[in-house]
Amino acid sequence: MDTTVIKTGTEGNAWGGDSQPLKVSYGKMMMWFFILSDALTFSGFLAAYGFSRFKFINSWPIADEVFNHFPFLHGVDAPMYYVALMTFILIFSSVTMVLAVDAGHQMKKNKVVIYMFLTIIGGIIFVGSQAWEWKNFIKGEYGAVETKGGQILQFVDKDGHRVKLSDFVTAAPIVREQHQNKNGIWFYGEKELPTYTVDDVVSGFKKRSDLLIRTQILTEDGKKTVLSREASMDKLTNSVVGVVEGANLIKNEYGSTLFANFFFFITGFHGFHVFSGIVLNIIIFFNVLMGTYEKRKSYEMVEKVGLYWHFVDLVWVFVFTFFYLV
């Protein structure tokens, strides 16, 4: 017996243990596979959005008309400027993140601290902007009416410019009380009443002879169909059942309800990812400050959390395209 050394006969082979074919640490590899699964989740949402959009391909709302607000520019039509700015902020925070990772590779603690801090600030600005965007979307701007078939009718003047309900409707003094479940049938409450009743809208519309109705249906060149005055009158008196102001999960003044549902769900899910990314970044930021990674002699944690942060940016690139551009 010469030796008791155990040889498995697999030395130098890829199989048999003791080798790292992917040449990457466990944590980083798992972060990659988490990102893969999360990417598939998001693609599921976006594909579902595509399904609904193809289903209502001739009546989907036009994003340029929905997202046209910019801070401090009231009443100015600014299609997509704000969301473009948000995109820049997120891309830029991605850049500061990758700079932090780069500084980490060179073990420059102070640089990592500065870049991580900038990344966190960028993330917070982005989430704040998204909240502002939601606020505008929920509040609505012009108001619309809804038909029996659930179609949304909007109001335009002769030149095709949108007209707000408040510009031509005066609320009649008859006040109908909101039906709350505490003082009526207990299992049957109702949502906040709209400012105007259908009768108010009809009488206001009759007084302004320049007003027309715009339906959800898109024409050949991608604009919404505008009805003639007679057809508008007919629609308004015969098929309208309610007034819609703003958007929620049930009603939506911009058009198809599904548009609002997907907007809330997809941007909300993405916003939640940004939020959790900020929390992770803050944790890592304090670890860097305390010198944890200096002691560990490796800033790989910054790299891992950076992967997640870039992924959040990557998803936004797709959401931006499919929600706002296409």
């Binding site: 040449k23 990659w32 870039h310 797709f318």
Partner: peptide, 26 residues
């Protein structure tokens, strides 16, 4: 739009997420 988006996604994954430096298998 879609092609430009895929190009951006490629840049972010390859340059920022450092996919270019990983092994072929990963």
């Amino acid at each position: 739009f879609i092609i430009l988006t895929l190009y951006k996604a490629y840049l972010i994954t390859w340059a920022f997420m450092h996919m270019e430096g990983e092994t072929k298998g990963l």
